[in-house]
Design a protein around this nucleic acid. Structure first.
Lengths: 152, 152
DNA sequence: CTTCTGAGTTGGAATCACCAAGTTAGCAGT
DNA sequence: ACTGCTAACTTGGTGATTCCAACTCAGAAG
């Protein structure tokens, strides 16, 4: 997005897409959520071209979603792996929302491939809209309104 | 994605990205959530090239996110507008999650440009993970686990 | 029957993604 | 010291996408 339209200047979605909107970026984050950390793991699991993978990893690092961390396997030289930062882990709701939509509206017939659960209780959890009193609202009842940073 | 890797075959995120992963698609949906319906509205607000807009609208219609609906302004001929289907409106959590992440990790300094609220109460709402008993869990406590449709 | 407008389509340049092949850095065996 | 090995990239060429400007089309107005 070279010369953004006014409505994109302060759009949180556009700013998020600057980081995650390119092909493969979100899938790399998904793999990282599953604990993959290494170039070759991303490469073979996603079937992504190595030049693109190198570019996306660099961009995600620059955006603060991943960080490079050295590791050393025994009998091997030191290499780098890629692990999620706090900002990267904070993308869990984005991925969970996409999984939820895909499971509901583009089902495979085999059931969901992944389910989000509490690490502490092990129970499955789902995304919901709640208001300040903790009352849940159906997504159909939720609409966006202009906030303080809105322009037009 | 021509020949998807095994891990992408049943991935809900990949299937969602098939629909929404191209440039502009999610921003078009965002505009539609704000009630824009017409070609020229999308075009001028987003600054998108008309050929790309035509292509994205067609894909979103094919995917069942938008539907074409005829309308007629007085003194004008009949034209088509584009409105969200139920599946399209069900993307609200995806957009809200992206807005939430962008506001937190890529802030503008002007405050959020949009806030999600309940249509019935007008109160602001936020996305949260809740378990079956309605107990809320922090996103940092939530991890994906393999579901019934998982392959590897 | 000419003009105007919304909604696109078309042509050509620039950017991006893909694939195969090659490169680099260090470790291990000889 | 040198040859081979492996993970992690680069590079070069090709095809697909995106972009922009200009053009077309259909119907209403004058």
């Amino acid at each position: 997005m070279t010369t953004p339209a006014p409505s994109l200047q302060r759009c949180s979605i556009a700013r998020t897409l600057d980081v995650l909107g390119q092909k493969w970026s979100l899938l790399i984050v998904r793999e990282a959520m599953w604990g993959r950390t290494r170039f070759a793991e991303f490469r073979t699991r996603l079937g992504i071209a190595p030049d693109i993978l190198a570019d996306r990893l660099a961009r995600l690092i620059e955006a603060g979603v991943l960080e490079r961390r050295p590791y050393r396997d025994e009998g091997e030289r030191e290499r780098d792996e890629y692990v999620l930062t706090d900002a990267g882990r904070a993308l869990t709701p984005v991925l969970a929302a996409m999984v939820g939509w895909g499971d509901e509206f583009r089902p495979t017939g085999f059931g969901p491939a992944s389910v989000y659960t509490s690490r502490t209780t092990g129970e499955p959890v789902r995304l919901a809209f709640v208001d300040a009193s903790g009352v849940e609202h159906s997504p159909a009842d939720v609409v966006p309104v202009r906030g303080p940073g809105a322009l037009t």
